[in-house]
């Protein structure tokens, strides 16, 4: 799904001075609220151990399925795990997965895209085939089999596996976006001039290409994080996400699915956080795009 978002981002003109963009963003209340939510979630995730009232894996025996109250602010699940604490640690898992996977996808995608778009020729052909193959490939198959191969035995290992699996599936979208941009920029006068002047490729790429394609990339990444957080939820649904009992919002939703009718609050809390975060990233991405597109503000 990352692809289409990326293509959407690719449609945006590049090259607004950053100060102006920031001013435009500040004028947009939706952008500010979204940014506020993202920052809040990030802060909660970082200070989770300080404000969590129980360890995420503590079973409060005798207090299973208790209603929200003073002992457990948001109640407990069927095993007696504190929902509030797990939501905080879940924020850690879900946000980390979102950020790390998007960054990984970004690195691979940009490298591949520039190679294909700027170098062209045989690079383009080979990388084109690989991205095509990755696109045509059933994503989940990859994720499931990777978990089988890497066989994580620790929570950290399972984190890494999820990162690798999702990043491997996610990079081709970014690669296509960057390739398209690189193709366009390659023939621009300033790049051709630099090349004619004997400037090295590496310098051209870092000085001319990358800065000019930055804004569509940033937008794509913001929107992508939301997609990754949802993808992690799907992996959890299949039972191959982050290892139990470590919580992620996706896992918490899956675990409380059978309680949908008896304890709707159990599924409501993580769904709410997941939904709000995904929305915030999406809205922020949108606002960023609008801010980056000068024509929208004439």
């Amino acid at each position: 799904m990352a692809v289409e978002r990326v293509e959407e981002a690719a449609r945006i003109a590049s090259g607004s001075p950053s100060r102006e963009v920031w001013l435009r963003l500040r004028r947009n209340p939706v952008a500010m609220i979204s940014a506020g939510i993202i920052v809040l979630m990030a802060v909660l995730a970082i200070i989770a151990p300080l404000i969590a009232r129980y360890p995420y894996d503590y079973l409060d025996r005798g207090y299973e399925l208790s209603a929200p109250g003073s002992r457990h602010w948001l109640g407990t699940d069927h095993l007696g795990q504190d929902v509030w604490s797990r939501l905080l640690y879940g924020a850690r898992a879900s946000l980390t997965v979102g950020l790390v996977v998007s960054s990984l996808g970004l690195c691979i995608g940009v490298t591949m895209g520039i190679l294909a778009g700027y170098r062209g020729g045989i690079w383009d052909t080979i990388l084109g085939r690989i991205t095509d193959a990755m696109f045509a490939f059933p994503d989940l198959l990859f994720a499931i089999l990777l978990v089988g191969i890497l066989r994580p035995t620790s929570p950290i290992g399972s984190f890494l596996t999820v990162f690798v699996a999702l990043a491997l599936v996610g990079w081709p979208g970014m690669a296509r976006l960057v390739r398209g941009q690189a193709l366009q920029l390659r023939n621009k006068e300033f790049v051709e001039a630099a090349r004619a002047a004997g400037v090295r490729d590496w310098r051209i790429i870092t000085r001319h290409l990358l800065p000019n394609m930055l804004s569509p990339i940033i937008v794509a990444v913001t929107v992508d994080i939301a997609g990754v957080i949802l993808a992690d939820a799907t992996l959890s649904f299949l039972g191959i996400g982050i290892q139990p009992p470590y919580p992620s919002w996706g896992r918490m939703i899956r675990d409380s699915l059978p309680h949908l009718r008896s304890e709707p609050l159990l599924i409501l809390f993580p769904s709410l956080l997941l939904g709000v975060t995904v929305l915030a990233f999406n809205f922020f991405g949108d606002a960023l795009r609008d801010a980056l597109d000068p024509r929208l503000h004439e």
Binding site: I144, G148, R151, P152, T153, S154, P155, G239, I240, Q243, P244, P245
Partner: peptide, 10 residues
């Protein structure tokens, strides 16, 4: 202890 869910065949 760490918990490791494994697919059935494996």
């Amino acid at each position: 202890a760490d918990l490791q869910p494994i697919e059935w065949t494996q």
